[in-house]
Design a protein around this nucleic acid. Structure first.
Lengths: 221, 221
DNA sequence: TTATTTATGTACCTAGTGGTAAATAAATAT
DNA sequence: ATATTTATTTACCACTAGGTACATAAATAA
């Protein structure tokens, strides 16, 4: 009977653990007094606006409304917090980018990606510009891992776009003579340039004007 | 006689002052043991690579080979040093930009500007990318004057390019129907995007590929 | 020579950085 | 009720940031 009881208890513990991971119904010790994901969103906002190095722990804890040890207990350290905020950035505000790749034609992929970018880069509800660009374009010696991480993200999206354009050549909606890698780099360059433009105060309409220039000359099949 | 001697002495002092301003032959107190402009070039290199906030005073004094009080005596403070290094950047490595505006046609202006940019942005002898972009895209509260200064520089070049393109319409080498402001913003966007690409490791040839895509579709008169 | 001027070197300052130890509070498990 | 677990609070740490006071060195002026 002792064994049976033990098994029941273990099973319940496992169940609770699983439940907690998805919707946090019951945990063990003192419950935390802030929402984990909401806090990440606040941290994202600070990193997005200030960059990795420009965001101080004091500004972060102020924005999150928690104190330092709580932040460290929940997220590890500043770098870990940035990485988690970045994950959330990619899964949230920037999810449109990978979604755009699923448009039916190369032209639609590019046009959707750029117009959705223009919206985000000048959205009055969030910092202007793209965090993948301005999170740490340059930095001191200690933050180069972050700088590289962001460059890797930018390059890996560019590569996904290249693959998509190569498929478009097979699909027949991009000329077989087209240079998929070159076009992908061109589009990524436009996006990164628009990010700088957004940071410098360009309006949504002005970015749409840039996109019109780009699309007016997109190669047709 | 006393008066005459005094006048001679005054005249010599004046002469020395003028000479010193241009080529520093004789000054008054202990002569400085480093070259002012050479030091500015070293500082530029550090700011260019690290950004304004990422460059620490220790790294700066190490690079310049002088100690802190000498740096402050010669250049004021970190912000002043950055401004002077920026002036030197504009007069030196980036002088090609205003020079490009003097090309005879709009097409040549843009092509020259972008190809010269591609060279600088990937020059192995200097940090990759454009300091006007990566010097302080984002920053903490204390450096926003620098961030704004750089944005103003970017915008003012864009405006100079717009004026040049408007003149091109009068000259007849750009269609009168062309949107000069839109095209200037488009070209500036390409340049800023190429700067990010350079920072992320794009090669000179890859940037030339981007430029080829741009120029293949430049409006003809 | 002596006074004056300017630059350098050492040593230091305050403020702020990222990060943590230790006590306490709030929940669950037994 | 008590033990255990987890979170919060306060107070602090070592270190680095940008910046400077002060004594000294090296030149010119008188």
């Amino acid at each position: 009977m002792g064994e049976l009881v033990d098994m029941d208890t273990d099973a319940m513990n496992e169940l609770e653990t699983v439940v907690e991971m998805t919707s946090s119904i019951k945990s063990r010790g003192r419950p935390r007094q802030f929402d984990h994901d909401q806090a990440l969103d606040k941290a994202l906002d600070v990193f997005w606006k200030r960059g990795y190095e420009g965001a101080s722990l004091s500004e972060l804890t102020d924005a999150l409304g928690i104190n330092r040890p709580s932040l460290y207990a929940a997220f590890g350290n500043k770098e870990e917090l940035f990485r988690k905020a970045l994950d959330r950035y990619i899964a949230g505000p920037v999810a449109y980018a990978s979604a755009a790749l699923q448009q039916p034609t190369a032209r639609k992929v590019v046009e959707t990606f750029l117009t959705d970018s223009a919206l985000l880069l000048t959205d009055p509800k969030t910092p202007h510009g793209c965090m993948l660009v301005q999170g740490a374009l340059t930095c001191g010696e200690g933050a180069q891992a972050i700088s590289k991480l962001l460059a890797d993200c930018r390059n890996s999206f560019q590569d996904a776009l290249r693959l998509r354009l190569e498929r478009a050549k097979l699909d027949g909606d991009l000329p077989v003579s087209a240079d998929a890698a070159g076009l992908a780099r061109y589009v990524a360059t436009i996006h990164q340039g628009m990010s700088v433009q957004g940071t410098s105060g360009a309006t949504h309409d002005e970015l749409l004007g840039v996109i019109a220039t780009v699309m007016a000359n997109w190669p047709s099949a």
